[in-house]
Design a protein around this nucleic acid. Structure first.
Lengths: 216, 216
DNA sequence: ACAAAAGTGTTAACTTTACACCCATGT
DNA sequence: ACATGGGTGTAAAGTTAACACTTTTGT
């Protein structure tokens, strides 16, 4: 006998003003009515897990064309009340610009939360989010992941702040710059960022067809 | 409607005489009768995926008390003929000594194959094995993984050969030795390996409670 | 002119690489 | 005694780490 249901869950991350954020949707029905949960849904027999999560994220969060990478499978017997549901979690990383220009409205209440200021989370999704965050930090050591967050212009201080958060220690600005530039992954755009205060930083972009190298 | 079945699959690796091997079982029934496949089985609603794979591996391969780490989820619609089966693959790494002293006989035909000399493989398990091998190579850069393969004595040339296979390039013996010893993970046992030819190598063991560091 | 953050260069410490000879064992 | 593979040291090149002053902008 086999009453196992399989669902997908999508921790979707972005960075806004050097703050890591995750997208959550508010649950409209019991159980956990009013709580925030990850987008996702049941896998039917005519869909792969990638098709399933893409459709659910579009329907619930209004974002299309994301890339997903497998995070982890959660199979505890009591992770969903009264049913046996195994969850496959799939991480996506999206840039600020894509969200602002492409996210469409849905029938769901959707919001981005800083990862250290999460609301009340339903089911075992706190656990799913914790696992995804620790994997996100590992992924951010790869140049291709960084490129997903910064497909267009960025400044070196912005990137430095990411690494200071990921490694939880401060880095020397001069050494960071030297090391990063030596990798030969990025080039100056010739433009400068808008400075809020202080000297404006140079804007850089990733070169085309970069290698996926370990950064730090 | 939901006719999705979930199964576990276990690529189990060991190293014998510096050769990477994987454990396979011969399928006794159609489809793929006579082909070799990974141990594993259907997940019922009263088992986590870890419980499921542990029981299946014990029953089929006769090995108990393995540690498993998630590899990947395979959800292509046609990966199993006539049914919709999603597979969760879980890698285990086991040492030669444990196999020889603890593996018990089962009703299955079981064998270890060098990973570059695989037999005829059933279902999509070639693909599952390929994914597992590439992840195994990444894992072998961690000290804890190496310790799983060498819980007791080993020689430095043995370990060097592993890295030469993983990185597909030759390393200098003197530099390898210096770098590895400097990590302060291992200690001399005072004994020497049996030499087939040439000077016998010193035997080392891992220290207790080592850090899980990146090796190369 | 001042506050705020970005940009830049040099030196010392450390790590990595390249390289050749001797040692312990079995035959 | 010889063949085979293991063990050892040193010097040059490259990388990382430590450190302070100047520049550009907004107010």
């Amino acid at each position: 006998m086999n009453n196992v249901i399989i669902e997908t869950l999508a921790p979707i991350f972005t960075i806004e003003d050097s703050v890591f954020k995750i997208l959550l949707v508010r649950k409209k029905t019991e159980p956990y009515k009013g709580y925030w949960i990850l987008p996702g849904g049941i896998v039917n027999d005519d869909k792969t897990i990638n098709e399933c999560i893409s459709e659910n994220v579009l329907e619930q969060a209004g974002i299309d064309n994301l890339n997903f990478e497998q995070s982890y499978v959660f199979s505890d017997l009591d992770r969903v009340p009264d049913k046996r549901v195994i969850a496959v979690s799939l991480i996506s990383i999206v840039d600020e610009f894509k969200i602002k220009s492409h996210q469409v409205s849905t029938n769901y209440e959707v919001a981005w939360f800083p990862i250290d200021q999460l609301p009340k989370i339903g089911y075992d999704h706190s656990n799913v989010i914790d696992v995804a965050i620790s994997q996100l930090k590992i992924k951010l050591n790869q140049s291709k992941t960084l490129q997903q967050i910064f497909p267009s212009d960025f400044t070196l201080p912005e990137i430095q702040k990411i690494y200071e958060q990921v490694s939880a220690k401060e880095l020397d600005r001069r050494n960071f710059r030297k090391k990063f530039l030596k990798l030969d992954l990025i080039e100056e755009t010739g433009y400068k960022a808008q400075s809020v205060t202080g000297r404006p930083a140079k804007l850089y972009r990733f070169k085309q067809d970069i290698e996926n190298v370990i950064l730090f």
